[in-house]
Each structure stands twice: as structure tokens, then as C-alpha cells.
Design a protein around this nucleic acid. Sequence first.
RNA 1: GACCCUAUCGUCCAGUGGCCUAGGACACUCCCCUUUCACGGGAGUAACACGGGUUCGAAUCCCGUUAGGGUCGCCA
Length: 443
Amino acid sequence: MTVRTRFAPSPTGLLHVGGARTALFNWIYAKKHGGTFVLRIEDTDHSRNTEQAKQVILDGLHWLGLDWDEGPQKGGNHGPYYQSERGAIYEEYLSRLEKGGHLYEDNGAIRFRSPREKVFVDDEICGKIEFDLTNPGTHPDLTLRRPDGSWIFHFVSVVDDIEMKISHVIRGEDHLSNTPKHIELYRALGAEPPRFAHMPLILNRDGSKMSKRDEGAALGTYPEAGYVPEAVRNYLCLLGWSPKENREIISTEEVVALFELGNINRRNAAFDLDKCFWINGQYLLSMDLARYAELAVPFLEKAGITWPTWNALEKVLSIVKPKVKLLKDLPEWVGYFFNEEFSFDEAAVAKSLTGPLAVERLSALRDAYSALAIWDLASLESALKETAAKIGVKTGELVHPARVAASGRGIGPGLYEMLEILGKQRTLARFEKGIIKALGTSA
RNA sequence: GACCCUAUCGUCCAGUGGCCUAGGACACUCCCCUUUCACGGGAGUAACACGGGUUCGAAUCCCGUUAGGGUCGCCA
């Protein structure tokens, strides 16, 4: 069988992570079976159907790396791929139902007369489920078209899936209960229903339904925060599915190889941004420096940071890279390398750069460092340790004032790496300023 | 309310009748890396919703209860 999957979002103004995950699994399934992944925009609701809202979806999928084989911007033999442009096709299918005697009018709307039978949904994820549709009271007839001529989701979705030869409908479990009615439509149209796979939904940490306002709900916030697409893909795959063997970090290629619809967990999953954050850090950590720097640039530029040479930038990024988990935090981590007017974190100053002790220690270190002939990691470290021993303090008690004086903050890359890059002149000047700062606070 | 789905650490997953005194990851706590840190290493806290069965044996199968989610739209 030729596998054709689809993602069929409606343009609501954002791409929800739940939708992104649905798209991802459809994409993976198509890839795994050498099939086709179709993107179709369900924009039958004209009131909220804006160009911008459509763009959000396309942008989100592009960013996640989920390229579609057929759809907007791409074309294909089963278009158009916007439902708003498919009216003629719907008319034709509607008249087919009409001829078959399946329709009736109700207050100007057109409804589908259910055969009133028991319908089995044989779901790839949920298994075989029986629905008893014999009672019209509990399972009312589907409306297909409104009095104003606009189309209802259930009908156009089925028509499009037939027309676009979709073989596997992989979608959220919120559609499960309507699926038997869709199957009735397929039958009335003389079409073979596709395979269905209903995925559990994504919930908030507390188990409540995830709404668009919740943190992490909109995919658009991920690139802004400095998540990388492969990390988000990795996280999303782990939500309801697992490669077994207790693996957490797994490439999309491997997921494609290992993926099975039947292995998708049936429970709803709570969305845990903490873990996504951690995974992002893992990807950032192992990323090669060239790409890392490339990704970093927009975040640095946005913060108004400039650098003398690309080489200098890469050098700074390389020592900071293992510790930063979100690209958007980068300016905070590297700004002071490129600007003498960097700000000071007051809490860090209060802790390590205040009072006569700080003055004494920093002065001692300044003296030792100004006497250094060679400015490298090893000499920086040994000079600091010797100084610490000489004045009888622990190394940490020199490290902290030095760090705050040199960078303005209490956390950062390794101190010696930092000072090496800063260079002797700038380091000593910053120590000098730090001493004055500490003197000022000691009064 | 009716119908459908689900039920393992706080969270995500592993576990498909004996290997489970339940494993991994995130988070949290502590220790180490005699330098911080959201790097790294180690340790720890912490769960089979409840009640009945079936079975020599159940987290795993069955029934019920409870809880959560979904659907029942002229929203998608």
C-alpha cells in the first residue's frame, strides 16, 4: 500500500505543540514507509481565516523541519490544498450523497442521514472499538453544510482524505468519538475508509487541558527562546512514544527507523517544559561550534552585542557553550566579553565583591597577575592558587571576587578560560575597577 | 447525563503472568570534580488509584468503584 499521511490544521493564529506533535508523527510515519506527507489547510471558517494565521503554521512546520511533499507552496496532484479553494469538489461529493438518498434538509442546513448501525473503528493505536450509532438521540445526524452554504469540518475532511488518497489518518484522540460517523460517510460515498490512528492528547503538568495561553503551548515561542528544532522534535517524540532501552536522546532518523504506531502510549501525556529544556541543552552541548555560532548570531545582534572578529566570537562561545541551555540566554553569558561597560549583578556583588576582605583578596590577585609574563590557562591557575596559599584563603575565595570583577556576575564559564580570553590588560583594568567598587561598598 | 478512552515515582517513559524487594530520564536533595555554574561523575527521596476475582504466581488478564480525559455543534 502506498502510504499517504496528512496534517490538516486550521489557521487559528498559532501552531499548538499538540498539533506539531501530530504533524511530526504523520511526517515520521510517511518517511518510515517511503510515503507522502500532505499538508492541507482547513480554512473553512472564514471569520478567523487570515493570511497571517496560515503563515504561522507554515513557519512552524518549516522551523521544526517537517517538510511536506504536497501542499501549500509545494503543489501536488491532489490540490488545491486550502479547503477554501475546494468548493467545487465538495459540491460534487454532496450531489453524490444526494443521489444516494443520504441527505435531508433541516432548517436550511444539509444533514447526512445515518444508517443507524453499529460501527467498528479498528484503530492502529486504540485497537478495535465498537460504537453503537443506532440511537439518534445520542448520536445525532451529522450536519454537512450550513444554511449560508459554508461547509462543516466532518464532511470536507472526509472528502479531502478520499480525494487526496490519504491512507493513514493520524490525529488527536479528540476525533476518536466522531470517527464512526466519518466511516459512515466514507461508506455512503462508496470509498474505503483509511486506517485510523488516534493519538492521546497533551495535557498540562497538573493534568488540565492545555490551552493556547499555557507556557510552551505555541510552537512559535520555541525558536524565540532559543530552542533548536532537533531538540524539540526529540522531546515531542518522547511524549507518548519511546525507543525503549531507556534512551532519551535520539535523532529523528533513528525514530523514523524504530517508530511503530502500535507502540504509541494510550495515556494522555503531561507537557514538561523542564525536560524539553534539558534536552535542548544536550543538543546545544554536542553541536559543532560553527553551527552554534551561526544560531547564536541573531540572539546576540538582537541584544546589540558586537564582536571584533568571527574568531573572537567563536572563542567566547566555545567556553560558554557547555553551560547555556537556551540560546536566548546567550547575551547574558557573553555580553561582558565585548563591552567594558557591562552591568553588575547586585546579588553577586553583595556576595563576593563587598567589604575589605574582597579588596584585600582582589588586590593580591591583581598583583600576582600583573607580574605574569605568560597569560595562559596554566599560569592563570597556578598564580591564583599560589596567591590563595600565600594569603591563606581557599581558592574559591579568590575565584568569586575575580569572577564578579571580571564579568559582573556570579555564574559563567570557567574563570581561567574567561580571563585568558579577556587578556591581561582588560583583566587587570577590571580588577582595578572591582577593587574600587568593593572599597565603595565597604564604607 | 449518555457514549468512548485512560489509570506505574511530582513529570515523561520501560515493564505485555514468574527476571519487579518495579528500571531509565527530567525535576528535587546530598556528595565529588580540593573554582563558581543550568558542564561532568556518584548517591538519595519517590509510583504499580482502590476493591474483588482468575492463577501455583499479577503492575501485567477479567469485573466493579473512583478519578482524569475526550465526544455528543449549523467549531475545527
